[in-house]
Amino acid sequence: AVCQRCQARFSPAERIVNSNGELYHEHCFVCAQCFRPFPEGLFYEFEGRKYCEHDFQML
């Protein structure tokens, strides 16, 4: 399997985020606008991209 964002493979010891069947490295699972991790894992999706609450409100 490969990361949805960076397309790199996962190492066996690595923590992986699964979002609706899409797999991400922990450091790749970030807001599409500000590139920060999601507070408490909370995000909003718009047109296939994931956003933090602040950036989602700015759309």
Rank of each mutant, 00 (worst) to 15 (best):
A1L: 08
A1D: 06
A1Y: 05
A1N: 03
V2S: 03
V2W: 02
V2L: 08
V2E: 10
C3H: 00
Q4W: 03
Q4K: 12
R5L: 08
R5K: 13
Q7I: 06
Q7T: 15
Q7D: 02
Q7W: 12
A8K: 15
A8T: 12
A8N: 11
A8C: 13
R9K: 15
R9Y: 05
R9F: 03
R9C: 08
R9G: 12
R9L: 09
R9I: 11
F10D: 00
F10V: 06
S11T: 10
S11W: 08
S11R: 07
A13H: 13
A13W: 04
A13R: 07
A13C: 07
A13V: 04
E14A: 13
E14L: 03
E14W: 03
E14H: 03
E14D: 10
R15G: 08
R15V: 09
R15C: 07
R15K: 15
I16Q: 10
I16G: 07
I16Y: 07
I16K: 14
V17R: 09
V17Q: 07
V17K: 13
V17I: 12
V17A: 08
N18P: 07
N18E: 09
N18V: 05
N18L: 02
S19V: 07
S19G: 12
S19E: 11
S19R: 14
N20V: 14
N20W: 03
N20G: 14
N20A: 12
N20Q: 09
N20P: 03
G21M: 04
E22F: 15
E22G: 09
L23G: 07
L23R: 13
L23I: 14
Y24C: 09
Y24Q: 05
Y24R: 06
H25G: 01
E26G: 04
E26A: 11
E26N: 04
E26L: 04
E26I: 10
H27P: 06
H27K: 03
H27V: 12
C28G: 00
C28T: 00
C28S: 01
C28W: 00
F29R: 08
F29I: 12
F29E: 04
V30I: 06
V30D: 01
V30R: 09
V30Y: 04
V30A: 10
C31Y: 03
C31M: 01
C31K: 00
C31L: 01
C31I: 01
C31W: 00
C31N: 02
A32G: 10
A32E: 12
Q33W: 07
Q33A: 13
C34F: 00
C34T: 00
C34V: 00
F35V: 14
F35P: 01
F35Q: 12
F35L: 13
R36W: 03
R36D: 09
R36K: 14
R36Q: 14
P37F: 07
P37R: 08
P37E: 13
P37G: 04
P37Q: 04
F38G: 02
F38N: 09
F38L: 13
P39L: 07
P39H: 04
P39G: 08
P39C: 12
E40N: 06
E40M: 07
E40Q: 09
E40T: 08
G41E: 02
G41F: 03
L42C: 10
F43C: 06
F43S: 09
F43G: 05
Y44N: 14
F46K: 07
F46Q: 05
F46C: 09
F46W: 12
E47L: 06
E47A: 08
G48K: 10
G48M: 04
R49Y: 04
R49P: 00
R49E: 07
K50D: 03
K50L: 12
K50F: 05
Y51H: 01
Y51K: 05
C52V: 00
C52E: 01
C52R: 01
C52P: 00
E53D: 15
E53K: 07
E53Y: 06
H54W: 08
H54N: 15
D55K: 00
D55N: 02
D55A: 02
F56S: 09
F56E: 02
F56K: 01
Q57I: 05
Q57D: 05
Q57L: 04
Q57F: 04
Q57H: 13
Q57A: 10
L59Y: 07
